[in-house]
């Protein structure tokens, strides 16, 4: 059976996505087969809390064109079809710009001389293994100065996970653009972690726009709550976003997380909250 896929996203950075995702995984791993995928390939942090031991490492690649000069007639068709300007006809050669290439293959199919082959251009590393608490863990790390995150997220999500996996938990990158969409694709539920501030609310609105367009059921977790922030609660009501968990603003939590502790290590009583949270998710995801 296909595992239920839960993406933890937020829009705004630093609202506590990883804090929630890691504690959710730890709590559920006691009862279910869990897989954890850290999709924040620009700034992956889950491993700092879950201490995985990796046993597999592969390169994430973009397949970029290499032109066989003996076959190339300099007709320029590849330059014409490339929407990303990763190719240019310069004098007597076709120049390739690897950092602009999306690896779409259009130049390859369209070359009338079949003069293009594709070679792997590494953009990062994919690693998988087991978290210390004995569940599957995988993440991707983008190489510094590479401009695109979505290809490595796509490849991370295609890595094999153990067949008995019942729940996969995806920690999304911050923001509300293409890399978040790539993480959310195929998810059964989106947990939107927000903080009760105008910044948190504005960016939650961006995320709501995405999950609505992608038709992914979603719920909200309010982190660092310090009394009711009415505009946020009103927003959730208006957009039929259930508030599924509220975590108070506490210095003790902030200090613990800074040291690398998860929420359920700081307060073990949250385990039950996360188990209950999952039961609600399972219901909402099936509607």
């Amino acid at each position: 059976m296909k595992p239920i896929q839960i993406a933890v996203a937020s829009g705004k950075g630093g609202t506590g996505k990883t804090t929630i995702a890691t504690s959710l995984a730890l709590s559920l791993a006691e009862k279910y087969h869990v897989a954890y995928l850290d999709c924040d390939v620009e700034a992956p942090n889950g491993h700092l809390f879950l201490h995985p031991e990796f046993n597999t490492s592969t390169e994430a690649v973009i397949r970029i064109p290499r032109i066989d000069k003996n076959r190339c007639t300099l007709c320029g068709k590849c330059v014409e079809v490339c929407q990303f300007h990763a190719l240019a006809k310069v004098g007597k050669t076709i120049m390739v710009f690897p950092q602009l290439c999306h690896g779409c293959g259009s130049c390859t199919w369209n070359c009338p001389e079949h003069a293009i082959e594709e070679i792997p251009n590494p953009i990062g590393v994919l690693e998988s293994g087991k978290a210390r608490q004995d569940f599957h863990y995988a993440h991707g790390t983008l190489t510094i100065s590479e401009p695109m995150a979505t290809p490595i997220i796509r490849q991370l999500k295609r890595l094999e996970i153990p067949p008995q996996t019942a729940i996969s938990i995806l920690d999304a990158p911050p923001g509300a653009s293409c890399s978040v969409v790539e993480t959310l694709r195929g998810s059964d539920f989106a947990l939107l972690v927000t903080e009760p501030t105008p910044f948190g609310l504005h960016d939650l609105g961006q995320m709501q726009g995405i999950v609505e367009e992608m038709r992914i059921p979603a719920g909200v977790i309010i982190n660092r709550e310090n009394g009711d922030y009415l505009p946020l609660l009103e927003y959730c009501t208006k957009h039929h976003l259930p508030v599924m968990l509220r975590v108070p603003f506490e210095r003790r939590i902030a200090e613990g997380v800074a040291r690398g502790q998860t929420l359920v290590e700081i307060y073990p009583e949250y385990r039950q909250c996360f188990l209950d949270l999952f039961d609600s998710i399972a219901v909402l995801a099936n509607q």
């Binding site: 330059v79 990303f84 300007h85 990763a86 240019a88 006809k89 310069v90 710009f97 950092q99 602009l100």
Partner: peptide, 27 residues
């Protein structure tokens, strides 16, 4: 994306000898 290369290709196809601008990106 790739505006630098696209603009360069346009200029190259005009067979010019020199370009004067404020800056040129790596591509």
């Amino acid at each position: 994306g790739g505006a630098g290369v696209a603009a360069a290709q346009f200029i190259i196809d005009k067979h010019v000898d020199a370009v004067v601008s404020g800056d040129f990106g790596p591509n």
